[in-house]
Amino acid sequence: MRPGAAASRGGAGAGSSRRPGEERALTSVSAGDRYEGEQPEDLPRLWHVTLTVSGAEAPLKEVRRALEQLAHDHPFLLTSRYACDHAEIRYWEEARDLHDAAAVALRLWGEHRRTSGLPPWEIVGLEVIDRETYHQRIAEGYGPPPATPVGVHPF
């Protein structure tokens, strides 16, 4: 799981035998491994995220370049669509629950605005759905079309 993809479950003292101020070592966990006492509902799941932003007009070339930089820096992005005053970013997020996936999505634009050169737009829409719901919508013909072609494209 990516750092920051899910909020920490409990701090020092929350079911922990660590003493205050004691450092906790981080260890890698192989795919499929479980922590002792971890339930299936605690394991990370895939969430389909659609983040919509808008604001004052910006030159199309700059918007495209910024979204391409964001996709380069964060290759989990599936597709971005853009115009001079709004954009939509779609991607899959791995998180334990919807709250964690939404929290990461809501930070994405602001945290990478400077490093990617993104316009100073605000988030005006957010949809986070689980994998089953995404595939059900596609099968029923009323969900967003699959993200093809992948990449950055104008509306």
Rank of each mutant, 00 (worst) to 15 (best):
R24G: 13
S54L: 06
A6Y: 01
L98H: 09
P144G: 12
P3L: 14
L118E: 01
S28A: 15
S17R: 15
R2D: 14
L118F: 01
E38Q: 15
D130V: 05
L108T: 00
E94V: 03
G13M: 05
S28P: 09
C84G: 05
R114T: 09
E38L: 10
R45Q: 15
K61Y: 04
H74A: 11
S54H: 09
H99M: 02
E127Q: 14
A101Y: 11
R114L: 10
V29C: 07
P146Q: 05
A14G: 06
E127G: 09
G13T: 13
A58S: 11
W121Q: 09
R137N: 14
D33W: 06
A31C: 02
R137K: 13
E127S: 10
A83Y: 05
M1W: 04
H112N: 06
R2H: 15
A105I: 06
V152F: 00
E23V: 12
V124W: 05
G13S: 15
G141V: 02
L108W: 00
L78I: 03
E140P: 10
T52C: 03
C84Y: 05
R65Y: 11
A7G: 12
Y91G: 02
A71K: 02
R81I: 02
V29K: 15
P119G: 00
E132R: 07
E23M: 14
E23P: 11
A101M: 09
D33I: 07
V29N: 06
E140G: 07
L46Q: 14
D97L: 13
R24Y: 05
A71V: 08
P40D: 10
E127A: 12
G125V: 04
H74Y: 09
G110E: 12
E93K: 03
G125T: 01
D100A: 01
H153M: 04
W47N: 01
V152K: 01
G4L: 06
L106Y: 04
A101W: 09
W121G: 12
L70E: 11
L51C: 14
